[in-house]
């Protein structure tokens, strides 16, 4: 099947292109006009890949890229910038892509969303696909640009799937990691040479980039994935503490892990919130780590069951956590 991958030059995209190629698909890799050489080379290194160049925010940029395409893996999104920049790149970009898809032969669409869409504050014990997403407009405002963009991207894509009649799979990965892309934001806070590990015993919702990419590639052609919304989190339970210590040891980064109980961190965030409301009223602003909603979305101790993902894709992730570590930090592995 011919598959268009948006965001193909990105961190996850390069791996998805390779995973699709391994599964026998013909890949059209969409790169932005100013994509760097490394991104282009990474994609072109995969045999048979056709590269198309467009920025999804620009009208009419997609002409030709969808010719003969039967499936789309939509990964393109802003991961930085202010709220408006993220909205333009992620949501308006998706709107333009969906307009182009409307006149095409596309039958399958796989959207990269995120577990950032969940309303973490109201989730009890286990985060699953049935957990509620953020609904309230003001709460969504407080959660910030990334969550706003991902939720609206999901909403738009679901509407288009209904109107246009193709099969949609929404994948919501946890923290996607690789060497140099450690999920530090989900672990805690760096403070000079210290890595404060918030809630050291809680499981981390992580997926190794190759495992995650494989799920996106499978979602294109496994019939059971059609119409599903699935969290992508690797099945091995890895605590925040274990990840942090393995990372520091294997990457030989300077620094020390310091455990900080979740309740202590949460109490500090609550106190900061109370102080802000007392001093400045409801309009007061705080750094994101001291905003309760952000704090919970990053650190709340929950279990992340992966049964549904495994039942749809019929099997565990290709790589265990130990294998992922060995792949991510190879030199260290060689020395052992």
């Amino acid at each position: 099947m011919r598959v268009l991958v948006t965001g193909a030059g990105g961190f996850l995209g390069r791996h998805v292109v390779r995973a699709l190629h391994r599964r026998g698909h013909e890949v059209v890799a969409l790169l932005r006009p100013a994509a760097d050489i490394a991104a282009i080379e990474a994609v072109e290194a995969v045999e048979g890949v056709r590269v198309a160049r467009a920025d999804l925010r620009a009208p009419a940029g997609l002409a030709g890229a969808l010719d003969g395409v039967h499936a789309v893996v939509h990964l393109a999104a802003a991961v930085s910038g202010d709220e408006d920049a993220q909205f333009a790149a992620t949501v308006i970009g998706t709107e333009r892509l969906l307009e182009a898809v409307a006149g095409s032969d596309v039958e399958r669409f796989v959207l990269a969303s995120s577990i950032a869409v969940y309303d973490w504050g109201s989730v009890d014990a286990r985060l699953t696909e049935d957990s509620p997403t953020v609904q309230d407009v003001d709460a969504l405002d407080r959660r910030g640009g990334y969550t706003v963009a991902k939720l609206w991207q999901e909403r738009l894509t679901r509407r288009a799937a209904e109107q246009q009649g193709w099969e949609l799979t929404i994948l919501r990965p946890g923290f996607i990691w690789a060497a140099g892309r450690e999920p530090l934001a989900g672990i805690g806070q760096t403070l000079g040479p210290l890595l404060l590990v918030l809630g050291p015993r809680r499981p981390l919702p992580i997926t190794y980039v190759e495992n995650c990419a494989e799920r996106f590639a499978q979602a294109v052609d496994i019939p059971a994935a059609a119409g599903r919304t699935l969290n992508v989190i690797d099945p091995d339970t890895v605590s925040a503490w274990r990840f942090a210590t393995e990372y520091l040891r294997r990457s030989r980064a300077d620094g020390r892990c310091v455990p900080v109980p979740y309740r202590l961190g949460r109490a500090i965030a609550q106190l900061a919130g109370l102080t802000s409301r007392t001093a400045f009223g409801p309009g007061g602003r705080l750094p994101s780590i001291l905003t309760l909603e952000h704090f919970e979305a990053r650190f709340k101790p929950l279990d992340f069951p992966s049964e549904r993902l495994r039942s749809v894709f019929r099997g565990p992730a290709p790589l265990t956590f130990a294998e992922s570590l060995d792949l991510a930090y190879p030199r260290r592995a060689d020395q052992r």
């Binding site: 949501v91 308006i92 709107e95 407009v137 706003v148």
Partner: peptide
């Protein structure tokens, strides 16, 4: 011009 931008802005 973007329907989603108009809709989101109205909602918020």
């Amino acid at each position: 011009l973007s329907p989603v931008a108009a809709e989101v802005t109205a909602e918020r």
